[in-house]
């Protein structure tokens, strides 16, 4: 989970950087898209690799979810969370599935659409307040998913040391919030 998760975070970074061109102008964004598609090899490798990473991330996630449900075969009569922050960790599967739903919609509408008119596609898309709402909700869910996922990834890689825990603690807030701000602001540009 952590391995694929970290790849996906990197993808999000590049995606956010690309999309940030929208803050300048729709034209620049279109130019960026055209530029990107001018290298079919890159697109081919990246899109297949990305698909594979997503698939592994999702399938492992679902498998682990089932395995973990089986390991706790008997629920407690009284369920109590001692750790308040752990809510995000317990809902990873649900936030993850919602993001999957978003991905299906987003990719079929945007990514697999005609890249030459991608600028038009998104301005058409974001003319509907419902779509904007759906996108922003998805980004909030993504932020929640990442709020646990990012720290969890570090922990799984063994990064937990009093010396650096303050920094990683900050990053677990900064990383999801940055993504939320960048991605979340884009639909709002079209209002």
């Amino acid at each position: 989970m952590a391995g694929t998760g970290s790849c996906l975070v990197l993808f999000l970074c590049s995606h956010a950087a690309g999309n940030a061109t929208l803050f300048h102008s729709l034209r620049l964004f279109q130019a960026y898209a055209n530029q990107l598609h001018g290298h079919p090899m890159i697109i081919y490798v990246l899109s297949k690799g990305l698909f594979l990473t997503f698939a592994i991330h999702i399938i492992t996630g679902i498998l682990l979810f089932w395995q973990n449900r089986k390991a706790r075969d008997h629920k407690y009569k009284v369920q109590k969370r001692t750790v308040k922050m752990s809510q995000a960790s317990r809902t990873m599967i649900y936030s993850g599935l919602f993001i999957l739903l978003y991905l299906i919609i987003h990719t079929s509408a945007v990514s697999f659409g005609d890249h030459e008119t991608i600028g038009l596609t998104i301005s058409y898309l974001f003319s509907s307040p419902l779509v904007i709402l759906f996108y922003i909700t998805a980004f909030i869910v993504l932020a929640i998913h990442l709020s646990h996922g990012f720290w969890s990834m570090l922990q799984t890689f063994g990064v937990n040391h009093p010396k650096y825990n303050k920094l990683t603690g900050w990053l677990t807030y900064i990383v999801p919030i940055s993504f939320l701000l960048i991605f979340g602001a884009i639909p709002l540009l079209f209002i």
Binding site: Q67, N68, K70, R72, V83, S86, S89, S152
Partner: peptide, 9 residues
């Protein structure tokens, strides 16, 4: 045993 999801409980 199940897997760790870093819930810290």
């Amino acid at each position: 045993f199940g897997n760790c999801i870093n819930a810290k409980e």
